[in-house]
Design a binder for these strands. Structure first.
Lengths: 364, 364
DNA sequence: TTGAAAGCGGTACCAA
DNA sequence: TTGGTACCGCTTTCAA
């Protein structure tokens, strides 16, 4: 550490010019005499030189920093994803600048612009807004944008890359699982489904219901929180409120529910408990995402898992290889989610004895 | 957005020099004629000018970015804290650069150095290592370091500021709560307690036990994972493993446990379930931190809450007011934690009926 | 194959 | 009270 060593000092120590040092630093070693190269490398090592990023960026306009905008790291899913992104970025020598949008378009826009102004040219944006209009001009200016958890939309700018699971398929998998267990009163529980991925999950749910020869309109439903009152962290509250409404004694009670994500599912479980019901017995619950807490919960929560490690790696790769691929053409990668069956989903009207009497052993 | 507007263009538009614009930008408006000031402000607004941080930093050596090093945003507690820090920083016009140390001294050092090299002069370091030697030279160079979740230690460099709850008191509060309920076989469950705060919590536990006229050596204990095999995210696994060992049929079973944090507590609950036991009935569990999931869990988890919002605000304030306070003297702020009693802690050998029969209603 | 010199966009000092 | 000017550390022509 200590006082900064500059490129000039390195050049002096190696008996070359700053230009040569710079060339080496930037991999332009094609025409460099090995001896020169070695002298420079030795000088760099000896002096413990590390380039000043501000200067480098000021001059070149480039950064080694990746922007990551998530709805909220307070939500375990996004926290886990952010961590995976950081790991992947680190492997590629990038830093990550993390921002929380709270799923607010204005904040998303503000952050994206701010990052751009800071010289950051690659951003992973975890948004699920149907339109990217709010960041269109930055994209036009040349921002490399990778959206996550939001499949490509018809009107997206051409250069946008999207990484997502196939939420429609996920919704179907979840619902089919419940149908397969024999449930026939299945509700879908979510906050606002204005977001693309949520809508897709809901559509998957509908598709599976219809495919089974039933009608979605016959299913119990809950619309207490159609608007966006709740941020991501409050998802649990949505689930809890839904449980209170759907499981009321006088309600048309579902025997199972598909929650739009795990936090909502966990909230629903909590709400079911408030109502004196036992999840997995009185009502089955399946969530989405596959957060660690799902496995920890009592009962362990069945969930449609997103392979976040793989997805993070993909997203970072696309975001960083900015100039590498000259086509600049966007693309959409849709990964297949997989269900992890645990104990929160069982056949309806289970005849099993109360779980207080029966040790069920570990899951998986 | 669009192409960058420079300070020169603003100056030209306002009919002044770049120096004056710079002065305004940096709050040196003391001797500025109001009319001049207004012209500049108008030009800035009209042109949508925003200063280039790289240039600014290169010249001044300062940054508006705050470094935040947490063990892992994959852990809900740290995710929530990071979010609070970001909110607080934003209010002060700062960005936050987030890094995950995985509680590894080498990674902590690497990140701190890297941030410093990037021109970041203020870092909130969530470490709990007994010594700060691994970052001592950066501190010496002038880094403004605020440690979080780690009370000040005798050998800390003088300038270090620390924000933490009083973990010793927290440990006592937790343990006294259980003692007050009538428990007399109370185990402390933790991964490695090499970290300062964990050690303090453990000491609080011991103090409370001794104060009650009992002996810690008489308490059931578990030392399966003394080493640091587990990162923060794996805390739950520690808890689960502990449950498997402590609650084995042939073991000297505790009637209650104090977990070093909520994730460990949740893991323990999961483990208790594996063993066919019911938390709150067969065994009481209290955690630490007060993460959202604690309230959501079944049964809702009693926990010693850390006021992370307030703490984040404090930490950011201290980190940002770098030069403001000229004394440069360190300080240690110890906040008092408070217990949130929920349903995972009850008197031992409870005679209450199985909770499957009794709706317990909401908590709190 | 290497080097010299001109900036990138601000800030800070000093002069006016 | 404002403006001129050097310069932060690096990259990037362009010339040698």
């Amino acid at each position: 550490m200590g006082d900064r060593v500059t490129i000039q000092e390195v050049a002096a120590a190696a008996g070359v010019s700053a230009s040569s040092v710079s060339n080496l630093l930037n991999g332009r070693t094609g025409k460099m005499v090995p001896a020169t190269r070695e002298r420079i490398e030795r000088a760099i090592a000896d002096l413990g030189y590390r380039p000043n990023r501000a200067a480098r960026q000021l001059r070149s306009g480039r950064t080694q920093t990746l922007g990551l905008v998530v709805p909220s790291v307070g939500n375990p899913f996004w926290g886990a994803f952010a961590r995976e992104v950081e790991v992947a970025a680190l492997e590629l020598g990038c830093n990550v600048l993390l921002c929380n949008s709270e799923r607010d378009a204005a904040r998303e826009r503000r952050y994206v612009e701010e990052l751009w102004e800071d010289g950051i040219r690659s951003i992973i944006l975890c948004t699920s807004l149907p339109s990217l209009d709010h960041v269109a001009d930055v994209i036009e200016d040349g921002l490399r944008l990778v959206t996550f958890d939001r499949p490509a939309q018809p009107n997206d700018p051409a250069s946008v890359i999207s990484i997502s699971i196939d939420n429609n398929v996920g919704g179907q998998i979840a619902t089919s699982h419940l149908l397969g267990l024999g449930h026939d009163k299945i509700a879908f529980v979510s906050g606002s489904i204005r977001s693309v991925n949520r809508a897709a999950r809901y559509r998957g749910y509908c598709d599976a219901i219809e495919a089974a020869g039933m009608s979605v309109t016959d299913m119990p439903s809950w619309t207490g929180f159609g608007a966006e009152q709740f941020g991501d962290v409050e998802a649990a509250q949505v689930g809890r409120a839904a449980a209170h409404a759907l499981l009321a004694p006088d309600a048309d009670r579902p025997t199972a529910i598909v929650a739009v994500n795990d936090m909502t599912a966990l909230g629903f479980c909590r709400g079911a408990r408030d109502m004196g019901l036992v999840v997995g017995e009185d009502v089955s619950v399946i969530g989405f995402d596959g957060i660690i807490l799902a496995e920890l919960y009592d009962p362990p929560l069945t969930s449609v898992r997103q392979p976040i490690g793989e997805m993070a790696r993909l997203a970072v790769g696309e975001a960083v290889q900015a100039g590498a691929r000259s086509d600049g053409a966007g693309r959409s990668v849709l990964l297949r989610p997989e269900i992890v069956v645990r104990e929160s989903t069982r056949p309806p009207h289970s005849t099993a004895t109360s779980r207080a009497d029966v040790p069920t052993g570990g899951s998986r």
